[in-house]
């Protein structure tokens, strides 16, 4: 606490000063004034964080939190902070993430006012997604995005926008940390809200898998491996039953997965196995699928018994493999 004057600023002042400082940073770009404004905003963010989290043993005060939240909505501060995140200092960026995520979790009865706010200012979500293009803020944006995606209305909004398809580019980036972070958000979007996701996948099946095939054939090892694993998870989730049926009825898919079974990476072969088994285990195989499997019957029966025989401690895998061998042996000329 300073010795003289300067009693704690009100939530209104904190937010207003931040907005003014941001305006200065935007106007000045660089130089002394911008630096001073950057310092200023850093201080206000710390003060806001303290109100939201409490200091030391002190619990946050509900009334102050409510006032601050209200001022933040009134001034569109979240929107501005996200839009200009790259201009802030290192620690200030992290403070924005904390403030944003605490506010998101805030509830009044059954309402989540910040979630509603973000939904009404959808530019916020677009900017956050685009954040993956700037490595200085990519991980900060990723943390906020994953918190947003926990709420079905926000997840639904992203899925229904074209911005969702930008993820197919981000998960393939060569920066391991950024690409993996993007993949983690991408995965949450496709799996977190079961009914919503199933509906999305079913409705957008063609467009989605047209994009997805690029991930499965990616030059990027991490993308290829993670997307193949995720594909297995999606197909085996009973919520996605109708999309799964569609997927395993397509001969192009089967050919791709059979090629991946022979990939030079053992891990990719392994993940491919978990997709391949769905084709074979399907009790209502379409005729073209049976045709392909039958045509490759001999090859498969030579290949599978020798496939990753050292995974003896993975009992489920061993069981599934012998089940596939039995099923393929039973295949009759269609």
């Amino acid at each position: 606490m300073p010795l003289f004057g300067s009693k704690q600023k009100s939530p209104y002042e904190l937010v207003r000063i931040s907005r003014d400082a941001l305006a200065t940073i935007i106007k000045e770009g660089s130089g002394k004034k911008a630096e001073k404004a950057t310092d200023e905003i850093g201080k206000q963010l710390v003060a806001m964080k303290n109100i939201l989290c409490g200091v030391g043993d002190q619990e946050p005060q509900t009334e102050q939190v409510a006032q601050l939240a209200q001022e933040i909505y009134n001034f569109d501060l979240l929107l501005f902070l996200v839009n200009h995140l790259h201009r802030l200092e290192f620690e200030a960026k992290k403070d924005v993430v904390q403030i944003f995520n605490i506010l998101l979790r805030r509830q009044i009865g059954t309402r989540s006012p910040t979630v509603e706010y973000v939904r009404s200012k959808n530019e916020i979500l677009f900017t956050l997604i685009q954040g993956y293009e700037n490595s200085d803020i990519a991980l900060n944006c990723g943390i906020i995005l994953r918190e947003c995606v926990k709420y079905d209305i926000l997840a639904k909004f992203i899925l229904s926008s074209d911005a969702f398809y930008q993820f197919f580019t981000y998960v393939e980036l060569s920066a391991f940390d950024v690409a993996s972070d993007a993949f983690s958000t991408f995965k949450d979007l496709l799996t977190k809200h079961k009914t919503l996701c199933a509906e999305f996948i079913e409705k957008n099946y063609d467009k989605l898998f047209e994009h997805y095939v690029k991930l499965l054939t990616s030059e990027n090892y991490v993308t290829k491996r993670q997307s193949l694993k995720l594909l297995g998870e999606i197909l085996l989730d009973h919520h996605n039953f109708s999309s799964m049926t569609k997927y395993v009825g397509n001969t192009e898919n089967l050919k791709l997965i059979m090629n991946l079974l022979k990939d030079k990476s053992r891990n990719i072969q392994f993940e491919a196995f978990h997709v391949f088994k769905v084709f074979v285990a399907n009790p209502n195989k379409a005729k073209p699928i049976i045709d392909i499997l039958f045509k490759n019957k001999e090859k498969l029966l030579t290949f599978l018994p020798k496939f990753q025989t050292d995974r003896t401690d993975d009992e489920q895998f061993m069981d599934e493999k012998s089940y596939l061998i039995t099923e393929i042996t039973k295949l009759q000329k269609p």
Partner: peptide, 16 residues
């Protein structure tokens, strides 16, 4: 990464 399981990749991502 070929010697790492998916969980290890997650640990690596978190570490970075």
């Amino acid at each position: 990464l070929e010697n790492k399981c998916i969980k290890d990749l997650e640990i690596l991502r978190n570490e970075i």
